[in-house]
């Protein structure tokens, strides 16, 4: 707010006490109106060029938007995202707990994991998992260090494109999530653990009932970002035949040469997914900011309205 509040005693030495003289006038802001007008113009022009461009083949876009093959790919993308995030978050919590543990070996193990999987490109990791059979042709259960095996499987039948994608995405995600979770754990006042310990709570219960719920407030927003990012990152698995949204779109345009139209079809679906995820993120944040009134992120409607309002006079 731009108004300055003046107390009744601070009207100034010569301030007349008529209501008219005390009115606060807001200056016009011609620059803001000009910028808003220009922005609206550019947006309209962009929309128009896109709508009338004959090279974009909107009829093809409409035709394929709800195509069976595309929907199958969409379903794989959703499955991959949800499953990789679920495994990634679980791994992240475990590794973060290892990082704050008193045991040096647990801390070192966690550090090595984060160092390796955060330090190499995800694309390389995905190709690696897809070709894992070249290193380990068989996997089995049995006595480690070369002892007898109870059962063995051929790696190639076990690690399909989907499994390789899941392994690559979730293990990579775990490394990033562990850093997010660790930051959340650190943000909780150590006095909370002391108060809980003084009540006689066990370490497990302190973590579960006191520390983690408070850390969630810090953890949820970046995790939402990670989820939205993961929706799009899954498109990387197209290099290992992951059968996801982008892969099926590519397969289609390799046969009918409608490259741009099918990329638009895929992009529209990605936008739909990320929009839905953003709304979910809002409700999660609200849930975990209980007891921290000031940081509650307003109503969903208000937030959308704020972003949509082109010009706000005085906010």
């Amino acid at each position: 707010m731009e108004e300055t509040v003046a107390g009744p005693g601070e009207a100034g030495p010569a301030g007349p006490e008529t209501p008219e003289a005390n009115r606060i006038s807001h200056p016009l802001r011609p620059g803001r109106w000009l910028a808003a007008g220009a922005t609206a113009l550019i947006l309209a022009w962009l929309a128009w060029t896109i709508a009338i461009n004959p090279n974009l083949h909107w009829d093809i876009v409409v035709k394929y938007q709800l195509d069976r093959v595309i929907l199958d790919g969409l379903w794989v993308t959703i499955q991959l995202t949800v499953a990789s995030m679920a495994i990634g978050v679980t791994l992240g919590v475990i590794v973060a707990l290892m990082q704050v543990s008193d045991s040096r070996i647990l801390r070192a193990g966690a550090m090595a994991y984060v160092w390796f999987f955060r330090g190499t490109p995800l694309l390389v990791q995905l190709i690696f998992w897809f070709n894992i059979a070249l290193i380990f042709p068989e996997v089995g259960l049995g006595v480690p260090f070369g002892g007898p095996k109870l059962v063995t499987w051929e790696t190639n039948t076990l690690v399909t494109g989907f499994v390789a994608a899941l392994l690559g995405l979730s293990i990579n995600e775990g490394a990033y999530m562990s850093e997010i979770v660790r930051a959340g754990l650190r943000a909780v006042d150590p006095g909370q653990q002391e108060a809980a310990a003084a009540l006689g709570m066990s370490r497990m219960k302190i973590m579960k009932r006191v520390v983690l719920p408070q850390a969630m407030r810090i953890i949820v927003p970046p995790t939402g970002n990670q989820f939205i990012s993961m929706l799009k990152t899954t498109s990387l698995v197209s290099v290992i035949a992951g059968a996801d949204l982008l892969t099926v779109a590519q397969r289609l345009y390799l046969t009918n040469f409608e490259v741009i139209a099918l990329l638009i079809v895929a992009s529209i679906w990605y936008l739909v997914l990320t929009t839905v995820a953003s709304i979910g993120q809002y409700f999660l944040e609200r849930r975990f900011s209980r007891g921290f009134g000031a940081t509650t992120p307003g109503t969903l409607r208000g937030r959308i309205a704020r972003n949509l309002r082109l010009t706000g006079s005085a906010r």
């Binding site: 003084a198 006191v210 408070q214 007891g291 921290f292």
Partner: peptide, 13 residues
């Protein structure tokens, strides 16, 4: 053994 802290340490959530 009950304990009361200078900075309360209530569970804020």
């Amino acid at each position: 053994i009950g304990m009361v802290f200078q900075r309360f340490h209530l569970f804020p959530h």
